[in-house]
């Protein structure tokens, strides 16, 4: 599989060089800060709701009893956070397709985005990425202090330059492909619940 000395590569690059229009300048990109910090939590919550997600702002108390009450039929609780054990850990999965057996998956996101209602996840939080799409229900803890104003700020998060995988997730999977009517779920998680919960470390990774 040696793509290293591909002659095709050079011929394509030569063709591109030959045909490139005269160089045009890169514009300076403003960050368009629009909202005061106080608005972020409200905007974020609206954004999640718009995309069929749920935000729980109140303290949920003991995680285990909260989850068992909320998901009475669930049996497999996968926890990727230190403060809750669950019935299993992502590390116990042998093959990544096994995440399909997870009923409820609990994670902590290091960042929310007010503009869109997105939460950030990466290979660090997920460990096994498929838990964010093959599990049935996703529960994400988020420190409201970690909500940034907009997508410009969001993409300043170091993950996008350092992690192999990072995901801005906004509500459960959905599709409008049948009759143009948006339905949930599509192929990914069925529900997404964001719980505001101060970070134990209160610091960005």
């Amino acid at each position: 599989m040696s793509a290293l000395q591909s002659p095709l590569r050079n011929s394509i690059l030569d063709a591109v060089r030959k045909n490139q229009p005269p160089p045009q300048p890169m514009p300076k990109i403003p960050r368009f800060h629009a909202t005061a910090p106080d608005d972020h939590v409200t905007l974020f919550s609206k954004g999640v709701a718009r995309m069929a997600g749920v935000v729980i702002a109140d303290d949920v108390g003991d995680m285990d009893s909260f989850l068992r009450k909320r998901y009475p039929d669930a049996k497999v609780f996968c926890s990727a956070i230190s403060e809750y054990e669950g019935t299993m850990r992502p590390s116990s999965l042998n093959h990544w397709s096994e995440a399909s057996a997870i009923d409820v998956c609990v994670l902590r996101s290091p960042m929310g985005v007010a503009e869109t209602g997105s939460i950030l996840l990466s290979d660090i939080e997920l460990q096994v990425h498929t838990i964010a799409f093959l599990a049935h229900d996703l529960v994400v803890l988020l420190d409201p202090k970690e909500i940034v104003d907009n997508i410009h700020s969001a993409y300043e998060h170091p993950y996008f330059k350092s992690r192999p995988y990072s995901l801005l997730m906004t509500g459960p999977s959905g599709s409008g492909d049948i009759g143009g009517i948006t339905v949930h779920p599509a192929q990914g998680v069925k529900t997404l619940t964001v719980i505001f919960s101060p970070s134990p470390t209160s610091k960005r990774t």
């Binding site: 954004g47 503009e115 997508i151 993409y155 995901l167 997730m169 999977s173």
Partner: peptide
Amino acid sequence: TESLAVFIRLLTRSATGDAITQYTSS
């Protein structure tokens, strides 16, 4: 990545009117 933000803000709004897609992955 800084320029990516500009496109992500435009793409889904132009396509379906949502602010962003459910999964926007790098």
